[in-house]
């Protein structure tokens, strides 16, 4: 990762996670929840918020403790820290809504092994000051949530004809006669939509880059 070579500017730390190093579309991290929970917009939202919370809190703690944790046991320490916050989120969601908890299934607990969080702890938080680590975590978290929502909106719209189903704000998009494409709610739909969206974002990024170099040369 080139960004570690020279200390990045503060704003860049935040923006990177959204676009240039988007954890899902660019780094292809955390694919397991991305494919599994994105069949409903509300799931994407809950997953994104939970993962962001865990990411921010564990980045903060890791960054605060970075001078005290011996490097031989650092991974074990990070995992314990991350697992603590994941369990907190797990209880919190159970307390908020059991239906939401059921539809997220095992994926809340699996945030522990989400490579985005351990990756950020190891690659960034453990070598930067707490404010920067938190900023990076927020950026990555929002980038992750954004990617989940990108998939979720398409999958729920096509697979069920709605947005925000199972919430009080459910919107029916195409009327009652719409034939839902159930494949989109099922796992294959996750792969199809993810593949096509990675294609789209790569194309968009290349295009923007070309425009940027063209502008610099001019």
């Amino acid at each position: 990762m080139s960004t570690q070579e020279n200390t990045p500017r503060t704003l860049d730390v935040f923006l990177r996670g959204l676009w240039e190093e988007n954890p899902v579309f660019v780094m292809l991290l955390g694919m397991c929840p991305v494919l599994a929970v994105t069949n409903k917009v509300i799931n994407c939202f809950a997953m994104g918020v939970s993962a962001t919370f865990v990411l921010v809190m564990s980045s903060l703690i890791v960054s605060l403790l970075r001078n005290y944790i011996p490097k031989q046991v650092r991974i074990a320490s990070y995992i314990v820290i991350i697992a603590t916050f994941v369990t907190i989120v797990d209880y919190a969601i159970q307390a908020i809504s059991l239906d939401l908890y059921d539809s997220l299934g095992a994926f809340i607990q699996l945030i522990v092994v989400n490579c985005i969080i351990l990756g950020r702890a190891e690659a960034f938080a453990s070598r930067n000051t707490p404010p920067k680590a938190v900023l990076d975590a927020i950026g990555m978290g929002i980038g992750f949530t954004f990617a989940l929502l990108c998939l979720g909106v398409v999958r729920e719209a096509l697979g069920n004809g709605t947005l925000l189903m199972d919430t009080p704000w459910e919107i029916s998009l195409f009327g009652p006669r719409f034939a839902p494409w159930s494949v989109m709610i099922l796992p294959p739909g996750g792969f199809f939509v993810l593949g096509l969206q990675i294609l789209f974002f790569n194309w968009l990024r290349k295009k923007l880059q070309r425009r940027k170099t063209a502008a610099e040369q001019a």
Binding site: A179, W181, S182, V183, L186
Partner: peptide, 10 residues
């Protein structure tokens, strides 16, 4: 296969 999974009734 896409159709089979998307529109099983049809």
């Amino acid at each position: 296969a896409f159709l089979q999974i998307a529109f099983p009734v049809a």
